[in-house]
Simulated scan of single mutants.
Amino acid sequence: MSNNPYGSGYGAQTMGAATPKAPPAGAGANGAGPLIKDTTTANFAADVIAQSRQQPVLVDFWAPWCGPCKQLTPILERAVMAAEGRVKLVKMNIDDHPSIAGQLGVKSIPAVFAFVDGQPVDGFMGALPESEVTAFIERLGGPGEDPVAAALEEAKALLAAGDAGNAAQLFASILQHDPSVLGAVAGLVECYLLAGDAVHARTLLDQVPADKADDPALSVARTKLKLMEEIAALGDPVALQARIEGDADDHQARFDLALIAQARGHRAEAAGHLLEIVKRDRSWNEDGARKKLIEFFEVWGAMDPATKDARRRLSTLLFS
C-alpha cells in the first residue's frame, strides 16, 4: 500500500540501508588488522604473541613442497573467515623461517598451533577435514554469534536512537527470515506506531499465532497500540482544556488530555492529569485513572524518571 512506510506483512522489506557492509576479504573484526597473514621470524612476536593477547591466533607451519599443506591451508582460511574475527590465522613458511618451528618441536607439517595470551595452548598436525578444523576453532574461540539475535539487537538500537526507518527495514528482514521472532514483531509494530500507522500495526499483531498472542514480548506493543487507538477518538485538546477550566471536576476531559499528552510524549503532564483525577475522585470510571496510569508505567518502563515520580506521587495519594 502506498501509505505503508515499511511494507505490508512480515516479509515486505529487506535490510536495505540497515544492512552492515561486509569487511574486505581477510579484514579483521572492526578493522583490527587482517584475519589472515604471513609472518617472519622477526615479526612472530608481534603477529602471534602480542595478537594472541587480544584473541586466539592459529599459526600454520607449512612449506611450498608439502602436499598436505596445500590441502589444509585453504580449509584453514575458509574456517577462519567464517569465524568472523573470533580467531586469526598466521602462516609461517618453515623453509624461509625454520627457527620458531624448531623451538616448538615441530617434526612434520602441516602443523597448526593455537596461541592464547602469548602461549601455545592447543594444536594438531596433518590435513584435517574442514568440519574438524571448524570444531577446533569453535573450541578455541567459542561458537559464532546468532545472526538473528545480533540483527534484532541492532534493530532495537536503531529504534532507540530514533532511526525508525532503518530499524523497521531490519525488523522486517528478520521476520522474512524467521516469522516466529516475536521481538521483531514488537519492534516493527512500534515503528508503525511512530509513523502514526495504527492500521498496519494492528494487522501485524493480528498475524501472530493465537498460541503466542499473549507472549510478554508483545505486551508493550499491544499497550502502545491500544493507547493510539484510544487517542484517535479524542477531541481537540484546546476545547478539552477549556472544559476543565469551566469545571475542574470534568474528569473525562482531564482523562482525554492525559491520553493526548502521552501521545505527544509529555509523560509528566499525562501523569499529572491522571493523578489529579485520582486525587479528586478515586472511584471515577471504576478507578479508571489509576488503571490508565499503570498502563503508562508499563509503556514507559519501571526505571523511567516519569514512572518513578508518578509512582511515588500515586503512593502518597493512595496510602497517606
Rank of each mutant, 00 (worst) to 15 (best):
A82Q: 15
A101Y: 03
P68S: 05
C69W: 07
A111V: 04
D96W: 13
S108G: 08
N93V: 08
T73M: 15
K88C: 09
L72H: 05
Q71H: 10
M81T: 14
I75Y: 03
P110A: 06
K91C: 03
V112R: 00
G105I: 02
M81H: 15
H97M: 05
V90R: 02
L89R: 06
A111P: 03
G102Y: 14
R78M: 12
G105R: 06
D96N: 12
V112M: 05
V112S: 08
C66W: 04
A101E: 02
H97G: 01
P68H: 09
A83H: 11
I75A: 12
G85Y: 11
G67P: 10
K91E: 02
A79N: 14
I109C: 10
L89C: 09
S99I: 15
V87H: 01
P110E: 07
K91F: 01
V90Y: 04
Q103F: 11
L89F: 05
I75D: 00
G67W: 07
M92Q: 01
V106F: 01
H97Q: 12
I109G: 03
A82T: 13
P110R: 07
F113M: 05
I75C: 11
F115H: 01
I100Y: 00
P74D: 15
P98E: 07
I100S: 00
R78Y: 15
M92D: 00
V112A: 06
C69V: 06
K91V: 05
N93A: 06
T73D: 13
P110S: 04
N93C: 04
Q103R: 12
S99W: 09
E77C: 07
R78H: 12
E84A: 14
I75K: 12
V80F: 10
K70N: 06
D95K: 13
G105Y: 09
E77H: 12
A114E: 00
N93P: 09
R78E: 15
D95F: 08
C66R: 10
M81P: 07
V112E: 00
D96E: 13
A83D: 11
F113R: 02
C69L: 15
I109V: 11
K107I: 12
S108W: 14
E84Y: 05
A111Y: 01
D96K: 13
S99V: 15
V106A: 03
C66I: 09
P110M: 11
L104Y: 08
N93S: 05
Q103C: 08
V80Q: 06
N93D: 15
M81Q: 14
A79L: 12
